[in-house]
Write a protein that binds this DNA or RNA. Structure first.
Lengths: 244, 244
DNA sequence: TCACAAATCTGGTATAGTCCAGTTAAGCGA
DNA sequence: TCGCTTAACTGGACTATACCAGATTTGTGA
């Protein structure tokens, strides 16, 4: 009854959402700024903490804010634009947009192909595959974790390489592989378990799963990649000429 | 302490999530089936209702289940695959996948161009534009609402046409327009207000916003379309040859 | 048999706490 | 001034209720 967070007819949490969204849009809360704590918002709005959190979840779902566990809620930086029809690696297209990309290798190992993997690689279940786990950040903020599977036949010594840069560059330069076709699939998902931990987000945070397969001229699969993105870090853009 | 919904070390709601996800995967809960009510799950799992809902929200975020307001939670049907590089309209690609598409016109009117609209159409703010609001469903379940803006110069009598089918067909057949380029942008969003109401979902449900602009050979904008999708109804797939 | 009214069930919203485990900042001693 | 300990703070998880309004079902009367 005392501030902007009531007014409207709808639920309280939506009114608080609108209020905060307005402050972000007007710049009263700048990019990267920390919002007042949940308990402060609670006092300010007169709502219960659960209601305040409801409003914050909403803003999070829209990509306007994000949380840092036990630290606070922050205004999200703008997303990077990802164009699946362009064959540029993460390091390239993030830098192109004036942001600072970094890559960190979390692990590299040989794993046995699961049933799903085997179907993709056209091999038997249990066949050894190289698995590369990486975490990538933009301006120091982790935005995705990925697992890339590569057939050892294609790159026998891959695990000995430095893989904190562009994997594609390694495959092309060291092994002479040429990717000519890309198959990209996207769907919303929830970030849970290892993925959530690696990104420093709460389990259950919404995300975007990008599954990418690249093939060479002989239609041999080169990379099979699962990327788990923070949903607010990416915007997909496709520009195409009509083919009919 | 009495059923599968405890066990693990993590939070209770994740354990319950895993339990339900398992039942869906195994087919114990079939597509379209209704889950037990929140209060029943509460009794079955021993958790508080808020905790049960937390698990349900998680599954919803992953696209496994959806809710019908004040009716219950249901297992989601499989998503349709949307390929932005193919120039096929909704009616076409949904039918292609063996599903039944329907379109319903919610309204058609002339509106004044907003600042954003004017930038896209290259016209002055306030210039009249045709706005078409539609709701589209798959197998009877509403999956998206859209607003399409069209320049009256291109299709002067558009508002008199029947628009429950393919708008593109009308523009092509009646006005001789030929789309040669498409610009598609996607980002996760929250479905709120009118959109949420039109889709019959709770305000705040996660969704996917698809913004589409189509141009003709003269690079004149033909359609400017905002599609608000239920996030679990769509999967984006892009297949491209490398161009570098 | 059919139409309508009432009781019941369902999710939606909201309150008011509790306890926990990391983060962060304050304070103090060397 | 620097480094460490400690206290305060923050979000995460959870419980236990309560009331509402729309959806659904049940029951009843015509």
């Amino acid at each position: 009854m005392q501030n902007a967070a009531d007014a409207g007819p709808g639920p309280h949490y939506l009114a608080l959402r609108d209020h905060l969204a307005g402050e972000i849009a007007q710049g009263a809360l700048a990019v990267g700024a920390r919002l007042p704590s949940e308990r402060q918002l609670q006092l300010g709005s007169g709502a219960a903490r659960g209601t305040v959190r409801e409003a914050l979840f909403q803003l999070e779902a829209e990509g306007l804010i994000y949380r840092r566990d036990r630290s606070g809620w922050y205004v999200s930086p703008p997303p990077v634009v990802y164009d699946p029809t362009r064959w540029a690696g993460f390091m390239a297209y993030v830098a192109e947009q004036g942001r600072v990309p970094t890559t960190e290798t979390l692990g590299k190992q040989s794993v046995a192909a699961s049933a799903a993997d085997a179907a993709v690689f056209g091999c038997a279940i249990g066949t050894p595959l190289f698995a590369l786990d990486r975490r990538r950040a933009i301006d120091g903020r982790p935005v995705l974790v990925e697992r890339i599977l590569v057939d050892p036949v294609i790159a026998p010594d891959l695990l000995d390489e430095g893989l904190d840069g562009s994997l594609t560059a390694v495959l092309t330069g060291r092994y002479g592989v040429r990717v000519v076709r890309n198959h990209v699939e996207m769907r919303p998902c929830a970030l849970i378990k290892d993925v959530a931990r690696a990104l420093g987000v709460a389990s259950g945070t919404p995300g975007l799963l990008v599954v990418r397969r690249s093939f060479d001229a002989g239609d041999r699969i080169i990379e099979y990649d699962h990327e788990y993105w923070r949903h607010d870090a990416i915007r997909v853009l496709v520009e195409v000429r009509t083919r009919d």
